[in-house]
Design a binder for these strands. Structure first.
Lengths: 217, 217
DNA sequence: AAAAATTTTTAGACTAGTCTAAATTTTTAT
DNA sequence: ATAAAAATTTAGACTAGTCTAAAAATTTTT
């Protein structure tokens, strides 16, 4: 079995790889895991020894097939627990991440499998992120940022790019929940803020900062 | 906050204290936690420094009020998770303990509180053990061992003293589940084994070893 | 293409929790 | 009441994961 810490590194490498092309850097990992570059270097050596990453000194890092399989397992557990916390226990989408960070490391194949069944095999977590398959495959989703929708189009909120509680709470406050319909009425040429109508009801002004972090289809 | 390991020591001290009068010994703790006496000694020093136990060298150990409060918190979390695993996910009572050993350490007051509500504020875990109150009080239950029931009495299985999967699976196999009615028909004078009728149906022979570990009322 | 800046790695140290072996204290047996 | 046995603690070492400071490699700038 792999340690709590190793699982977190793999997960983080996966996320950073998905975010940009090419190798993941030591520094970006240090930032994401809130440790120092020296600690990351050390851990990379260990993960490379275990064949979980491809690693050449000074050249950045990439998951091996086995490493990606493990990372997706952890992400799958994380997201399934988030669904549980949200759907069954009534936690807000701004609260579930932190608890899932711990729950994702509970070691039992059977547990996540039964939990998945109990939840009715959900496809997405409370933030709209897809749940990897048991076999370790990440579903591809094709969403657009709200900031890129043209005036007159009506779209539906499908996910978020920013997962901080602050951002999610802001969305709650303004009523921009997952699944709500958004009609783009106007785009401000100066600051790229968007004027939208929500669920054919109230009209709202959305900053570009927010619009860039809202995924729609 | 306290570490995973500290929580386990406190929990174990609580269990051993409940099992016998007086101070808990270093050796018994070493056995229970599957470590060595030397490691226990070390940890006891640390727990004493944190005022979680009363500890005089060579004299054994006893929880302080604060230590007991923490121990009961952990036990509460453990048992509530067991109920969840059993009732909602369909795990057997022989399977839940191991997973709960990990789940009990998830740090969130809110989580256990919401889980408790979701489960309808259960009073007992799947083994019949009472669930401590949120305030940290262990309900007292007055059960008798099946081995001490007199011939002719009909009782109900309320709990177990032995929690090993092997024992629990044995009970499953023989149909001695929690809640089932047991009429004591005969006690063998030689080996103290008991002849019982289950739920007014089949008759069963129960060894004294088993009868001593079955709690009834 | 060399110098400067940045990034990454190494070296050495620290903590929590564990271990073995040795020393000490307590208990039991004579 | 002493000797032997058992239990407990201390001493010193190990591992995983972290850190700071220094060294080395890479990238950027001039």
């Amino acid at each position: 079995m792999h340690s709590f810490t190793e699982e977190n590194y793999l997960k983080t490498i996966y996320y950073l790889s998905a975010r940009q092309e090419g190798e993941v850097t030591t520094n970006s990992l240090a930032e994401m895991t809130a440790t120092k570059a020296a600690s990351v270097s050390d851990m990379l050596r260990k993960l490379a020894e275990k064949q979980l990453i491809h690693y050449k000194k000074y050249q950045g890092v990439r998951l091996t097939e086995e490493g990606e399989r493990l990372a997706l397992k952890v992400i799958r557990r994380h997201r399934i627990w988030e669904v549980f916390l949200s759907e069954k226990l009534g936690f807000g989408w701004d609260e579930v991440h932190e608890m899932a960070e711990e729950l994702e490391h509970i070691r039992s194949e059977d547990l996540v499998q039964k939990l998945d069944a109990f939840l009715g095999y959900p496809q997405f977590d409370p933030h709209g992120d897809p749940i990897p398959s048991p076999a370790g495959h990440m579903p591809t989703v094709e969403y657009t940022k709200l900031s890129e929708v043209t005036v007159g189009e009506e779209v539906q909120v499908m996910g978020v790019l920013e997962h901080s509680p602050e951002f999610l709470q802001h969305l709650d406050k303004t009523g921009l929940n997952l699944g709500c319909r958004v009609l783009v009425q106007d785009v401000n040429a100066f600051d790229k803020s968007v004027s939208v109508q929500i669920n054919h009801e109230k009209t709202l002004f959305v900053s570009n900062e927010v619009a860039r972090n809202l995924l729609v289809n």
